[in-house]
Amino acid sequence: MIPDLDTVPLLGALTPTQRAVLAGTGELETHRPGTRLFEEGQPADRARVVLCGCVMVDIPVPGRGSVAVQSIGPGELLGLSWFVPPYRWHFGATVVSPTRAIAWDAARLRELAEEDPALGYRLSLALAEAMLNRLQSTRLRLLDLYRNPR
């Protein structure tokens, strides 16, 4: 059973009715640590919001193996590539602790957004907010603010 999406801050921009539509089309996934969810270059066919647990987003670097660049935790969106052509993952993802997530068929979610522009707009706003937050956080990480200034 899909939990109440009203408690997911990421979806706060949607109306209760729109959240109910999303809840009706999503499914609950549970994953064990070590599960590989997707690989770079594969079709981005699933949208997920993590409810509990942790997923590591990584990229292969020659000589260093898979390098983790970001973790996705409770309340966060796992992956954005499913929303923008060419709908292929830019990074890989592995589950690192027991994880529950709400997952949607990405093509179905895009259809819903096309059919109902109000839903599509609100969903786009939610995704833009998630992207903006991630972009700003990444910029702040680039500043290396915690380094020793000596």
């Binding site: 942790c54 590591m56 973790s71 935790g73 690192v96 700003q136 956080s137 702040l140």
Partner: peptide, 15 residues
């Protein structure tokens, strides 16, 4: 195996 990211990210997503 903990979180990777800036402190703003859990703040945005936590209850």
């Amino acid at each position: 195996t903990g979180r990777i990211g800036f402190v703003t990210e859990p703040l945005a997503a936590m209850p």
